[in-house]
Amino acid sequence: MRPFEFTRAPSLKEAGSLTAASDSMAIAGGTNLLDLMKLQVETPSRLADLNRLGFAQIEDTDDGGLLLGALATNTETAVHPRVRRDYPVLARAILAGATQQLRNKATNGGNLCQRTRCFYFTNIDQPCNKREPGSGCGAIDGIAKLHAILGTSDQCIATYPGDMAVALSALDATVLVSGPGTDRSVPLREFHVLPGDTPWVENVLERGEIITGITLPPPVGGTQLYRKVRERSSYAFALVSIAAIVEIADGKFTRADLAFGGLAHKPWHDPHLADALVGQAPSRELFDTAADILLEDARGYGENDFKIPLARRTLHAVLQQAAEDAA
């Protein structure tokens, strides 16, 4: 770790100004940031500790939804009675990620900002356009088993590694952001961005902006599933994960909100999937059609070619299970 100045942010406003400079960062749980600081992937000169700012609440919103404070831990979120009852896909996604120790420390806001597990990003002696713009992408033509098949660029094929945000995408959550000028709300589905020519940009946060919370829309019910395919039975990042909120009435899908992890630089949500599924009766052919839509532009990079059939088959498994559960 490089030396840094450590300040406990006394207020949200001051947290914003403390983190406005390009060499400043905010720290909450720290489980991802300190990992990367030890590797000198992150080298802030100033750290603003957000932990005592207070927005750790989880409370009902006026429209019947739920506000998840940015500083609430992943565990507090997953075990919250309303999350367990009304947003099971979110509880399941959180519990499928990391370990109890990490979830106990990691915060909701930090989770959205966690950075990729790409081997070349975390090794400062290797090229990485995300870490060092213009240095090249080590993963392309390198070891890329974990890497993206959707929305990649010739600059970066990293994946967003989290689970929670995949469920939030399926739930169509909103990220609440407090900025120097004004506060704003960003749909979760638009919060993370694709790498394009600026792979170092991972989300829409501007300097000095702080995530204060995440709001969930009123509960929609239905069958909610989170399916994570991984190499260990626990404590491993997703090869493919799927968050699904599915309803079936009269033998036909009436809702099919799906989001995917492990496939792209962001939780992947394709509205065409719901369009194709809703109004149709579950069948292998229909699931194949959905997979065709999902994977139409998929591209493998050798080692991760398997993710294309794996995503297809996992989608089958999830839709099949959802159809059976809903029936």
Binding site: F6, I27, G30, T31, L34, L102, K105
Partner: peptide
Amino acid sequence: GIRINSCLTLAAMHE
């Protein structure tokens, strides 16, 4: 009362 990894947190964060 909560278990955490002590390696991924700063002592200064635990006043």
